[in-house]
Nucleic acid binder design. Sequence first.
DNA 1: ATCCTCCCCTAC
DNA 2: TAAGGTAGGGGAGGAT
Length: 1218
Amino acid sequence: MAPLTWSGSASSDYYDDDPEFLRALGEIEIPEAHVELQHSKPEPPTNEGPSTEATNTRKRARTPEDDDGHQQFQPGMTSIDTGDPESSYLASYTYGASRFGEFSEYMARKRAKLQIQNSELNHGNDQTQKSTIFSGLQIYINGWTEPSVQDLRQLIIRHGGVYHAYLDKKGLVTHIITCSLTPAKIREFKHMKVVQPEWLVESAAAGLLLPWHNYVFRPCERLEASQGKQVAQKSLFDGFVSQSESQHQDKHPSPSVASFNVGSGQPTAPTAGPSRLVTEPRASATPPQSPRKPTPVTPSKPLHTSDPSTPEQAARVPGYAAHTSNPIAQRAMADPAWRAAHTSVAPDFIEGYYRNSRLHHLSTWKAELKNMVLEAQERAEDGGAAVLARLAESDESVVAKIIQENLDGTGFKSAGEGDVSMRGARLEMQHSPKFKGKGKERVVEDNQERVIMHCDFDSFFVSAGLIDRPHLRGKPVVVCHSQGAQGGQSSTSEIASASYEARKFGIKSGMSLQQARKLCPTVLTMPYEFQRYKQLSLQFYTILMAHADDLQAVSVDEALIDVTSSVMRIKSEIAQSQDSSSSPTDPAKDFAEAIRAQVKKVTGCEVSIGIARNIMLARLASRKAKPAGSFHLLPSDISGFLAPLDIDDLHGFGYSARQKAQEKLAATNLGELAQKSKAQLCDALGKGTGETLYKAIRGIDERKLESDKPRKSVSCDVNYGIRFESNEQVETFLYQLAEETARRLDAIDMRGRSLTLKVLKRHPDAPVEAPKFMGHGLCETFTKQGTLIAPGGRATSDPKLIGELSWRLLKSFNFDPGELRGIGVQIQKLEKTSSASTTETGQAILPFKAVESPKRGAGLAATDLDNSHTLGPSPNRPRIVVEPPSQENEETVEGPVKNSVAGAELDLPSFSQVDKSVFEALPEDVRKELENEYKRRSVTPGLGDAIERSRSASLQPLPRPTRKNHRLLVKGTNLKRITQQLAPRNRPSTSVNKGNLFVRGKSAGISSVNVSERELGKLGIDPEVFVQLPADLQREALAQARSAKAPGATVYSQRQVLKPKPKKKQVGLYRAPPPKAKYTDPPSLKQQGKTKGTKLYFTEKEDVQRVIEQWVEGFREYPPNQGDVDFFAKFLVQCVDNGRSSDAGVERAVAVAKWWLILLRRYFGFWEDAQDPDSQVDQEGAATSEAVGRAWWKAFREVKAKMDEVARKRFGGCLSLR
DNA sequence: ATCCTCCCCTAC
DNA sequence: TAAGGTAGGGGAGGAT
Ligand SMILES: Nc1ccn([C@H]2C[C@H](O)[C@@H](COP(=O)(O)OP(=O)(O)OP(=O)(O)O)O2)c(=O)n1
Ligand SMILES: [Mg+2]
């Protein structure tokens, strides 16, 4: 019976009988024994004096009484609060100058004595009035602004920028600052950098020129924000999406805000509750001795939740299942009005929920940071030379500025190739100037030992909250939603972060407030301040980016950086300047301390840094470094350092791994595990994990920092507050969730082809109301997957389609609405919406190139593309049996069922059943043909499903799958994978967790077919679509596909017009498909291709020309795909814009454009001067030659315009193709 | 041997 | 009152 149960790890967390919790509680008894355990952590304390000292001091200072007192004063603190921001604001002027400048200064001092901190301080003061962070900026302020124009002007000038009262000299103005724009202005400034005033204010406050991109002014967003509508998903790093919550930004600017702020701070005040507490356990005022330090075995991780993951396991936890409902929740739920307003049936439940969910924020921030890092790196790559410059000499400009300004720089020729990636450049640099020389030499990675740093804020949320509550420093404080005494001791509110003082009592993140109160009755609480966390994080990352060769975003408060080159530089400089003498210093550690000081100065919060030769060790080192310190784990100490640790101390190894190790190896200690053979470890934990552990124990971890992995899925989950009474409510909720999901997809410009619905259902043995207020409690989980398809078989982000499919899948479970406790929608098989739109990233990968590659062979071309094979029907075709689709398909999971390819004939699937993904994957022309074919045959099978019907309807058009494959992709390897990915699978796979839950019966999506989905996938046929085709069509499609494929071609996709094209009849089959230059992009491919070093570039003009020729020729009868046009445009623009160090790129771009022009004149010369068609092709579908010609010219003009835009910026004029 | 797919697990 | 989200690594086991 127990299908898949989901454990709620949680449930037990909220009980007092949680084993771990009890243990901690037990240790608390010791009332007065004041220990000075500054390090309650398992590992031996470390740290250097300063931090330790501070810690101790604080500890001692506090007592419950103090807490109360302070709280009482809070109101009074108002003024202080207000002042605080102000002072820091002013401070920015003070030392705001260039932090990087300071760094260079640092270098100098280093040579002399390595007294960074002092130098920074002094230096900072010196420059007080000379901040130059805005130097180079020429700013125009439009309209009314929040900090007034006068204030902004002063700010600009004070920091070295230039203020323009008029916009008459657009050419000079680098940025426009505004809070609002009229439509006309929006148009006028379309091509300029329009930023919000926060950019300047926050940069000044940070003492750094923050990336303006994060403050781009966006009309609509502004609007939303002002309306308070606010999307649930906060696009944090977007700069301002400030919310107007209570916490809101405690911005420095307006006093009113400050006061408001105070209010927010106030919540803490109520905590005055302590007074009452005071009486109670003063005892608790003193932390227990180091919490469970002396455990016989090792302590085991800080996870206070050792939750069972299955009901069975959960059952072992005393009091978990048999429990009765949370009385408070039960009472609340008894009131219909309350339910309507506070549970999942409330109108804006999702939005409000996400806005307050810390975990949601953490996830969102992480994704945004990764993205920002990626973009920054790409930008930097473009300006590789700049990087070199920076490294070469410590410049004094701000990072961002450097990057931008240096683009022009040239000096660095060598980089010569222009295409050299930033990374490579850097490497070269660091090793020493000698290598600078060129390219190839850069060793790919020499054996140089890396210097990795793991940087992490100390109790981040708490530290951030203390900025405005200095009086709470040194006390046991936690951040959680429940504020004040109200929640009292029964609050199930989760603690997000605990101060180090609170940790001494055993309080940890994830614990409920009531548990924490039992451990420490005087614990104080602070509210969340999401906006602030985001800002601090931005400052933190900005600093790290300036010093790192590479950076991996781990979390808002955490990042891994590779500082190998910087450390090397420091070493060499030291060596040069002062020979042998200096000795004992550790450049890496000094560097880390410099970074810590910088972050502290800018953010006011402590960051700890762990340094080691690899990621794993750096993480361990940072733990030892905390709080407020740095620790360099030297090679010689690794062994001794690791031995006493436990397996779950290693990142990536948690409760489960520990259990397995204990059960199968009878040991969890690394020292003991070190005795085990690799085989033993693999046997216990699995191959890969076993090997990872084996190496980890020996201090080995060769992983590189990752910062460019493409996103693979986007999902929305709500497993809190889910309480429905009817199916209508569930449906409504699900559609809202689908909308949220769609928004997230759109936000990153992606669409998907696959959807997985996840459902949490109350476990039969669990109480109706979970222990955690409105929580999900112990549940069973179910997932079901379905193919998401838009009309043309394309990937989609349409909320309706997502909602429809989700609802369909959910209905298929037939669950009682009242039993649902969680719902999640995940979209997979993602692709970028427009290939070229946004980012400019990597582009130079031409998809085109692949086409040629066959010849050139290079490994890259794995694809073989095209060969246009004709597709003949192939001899043996398997048959696909189609069953009527039912909506849900749940049927049994007969997963494998259907496909046996044996047969010889097949029925064509109905359109809706053909896997859209596959379908999409087909070359556009092929797809069109297929559509036509379907249309012609008017197939639409009758699947009863309305959805399907609609789907097929939309799909309509094309018939036959002919394929040609042209693929292009870059990285062969991926091709295959992608192809498969595209392939469909259809049926929703339900993962059932135990079977009975499913209702079976309905027909499933595909029913049985004799062709396997996999094959369909390989053939580029979407199973879903396929299934719905009439048998004869299926047969035909398969035959064609197979024959086409025979040559081993891969099919690619393209998206395109859905309209049927009139072209010649549907014809028989495919006409030779035009060679397309397309590139479809399964984004993943593209991105991956870009992985370091693998980019493909058009290195030779000829290559490009050949590709273009094929493209134009192949599409002589069709208008070009917008995606191809965009891609091409992107490529050309990049050529023009890139490689600032030489004109090679421009020349190439011009040559290519000329060639294109020639080709167009050759084929469509007649329409060169025709006006835009607009009416595109068809209506009737017929793409007249005229329409085609116009479309091509339109594309040309579009691309030329983009090139000129860039050229104008760079050279001041348009490009001449004469 | 390689691939998927469908989970579980982990982290913040 | 509270806001238990999410993306990606990897294993098990089936298909190819
Ligand atoms: N279960 C958790 C774990 C973390 N966080 C949030 C709050 C933390 O402040 C932030 C960073 O997590 P860390 O693990 O880095 O913990 P802290 O920064 O609080 O403490 P430290 O890094 O000093 O151990 O993430 C959370 O909300 N819930
Ligand atoms: Mg932290």
